[in-house]
Amino acid sequence: MIDTGFRDRTEPVLHLDQVSRVHGQGAAEVHALREVDLRVYPGEFVAVMGPSGSGKSTLLTLAGGLDSPSGGRVVVEGRSLGELSRRRLAEVRRRAIGYVFQDYNLIPALTAVENIMLPRELDGVSTRAARREAQAALDEVGIGELADRFPDDMSGGQQQRVAIARALIGERRLVLADEPTGALDSTTGEAVLAVLRARCDAGAAAMMVTHEPRHAAWADRVVFLRDGRLVDETGRRSAESLLITAATNSLNRPEAS
């Protein structure tokens, strides 16, 4: 279970406060989300699972300020997104939130490194500093040598890693990812998850939508959505079993040859 002392002392990076989202009107009304309450804390990696149509992607677009809730509030680092002007919202999205889209959303006319630099330059960071940060982010996801390639000259997996590097650059403390490992083979997918994991261990918060149990397992907490409601979640620390204790002991045991 989560250490509640930690929770009491710490402000969540992301708070979905009784958030609902209704699409359409009258008879065509669809409740995509119903009064979802979810807090993501610094250092926490949360995975969202659920059948298709359960509201996973809606949850993520609301958390990223790409859509507005029909009810409730979305609070990022203490700021309620609904109360911000368009300009301030754009700024929060650029500075505080890294978003990895399912279909990458790279700008085809820019190279990999330029795609990643763009938000930093908009923030007023010098071109040289932005390029240095972008190169570091590319190195972090393991494709530093592809900095000057254009998206069209890269594989889907490589483009996805550029998109992830773009989400990680700067001081962003909230990373949102929609099936970030979809286009990646299993080893590369794991490498990307390890990057997200490391970011959270360094104090960022991340929320990832996935249907892959093996990938969700990298998270501290897995929440389950069904018909727009949060129906269940795993603890941050599970009270698993003798097996794990035994296994851990044997890992730490000096090697028997």
């Binding site: 149990p213 990298w218 795993t234 603890g235 698993e240 296994a247």
Partner: peptide, 14 residues
Amino acid sequence: RRHSIQALQDYTRL
């Protein structure tokens, strides 16, 4: 499912 995901989280940590 919750139980198995939790086990999966533990294995993944190890």
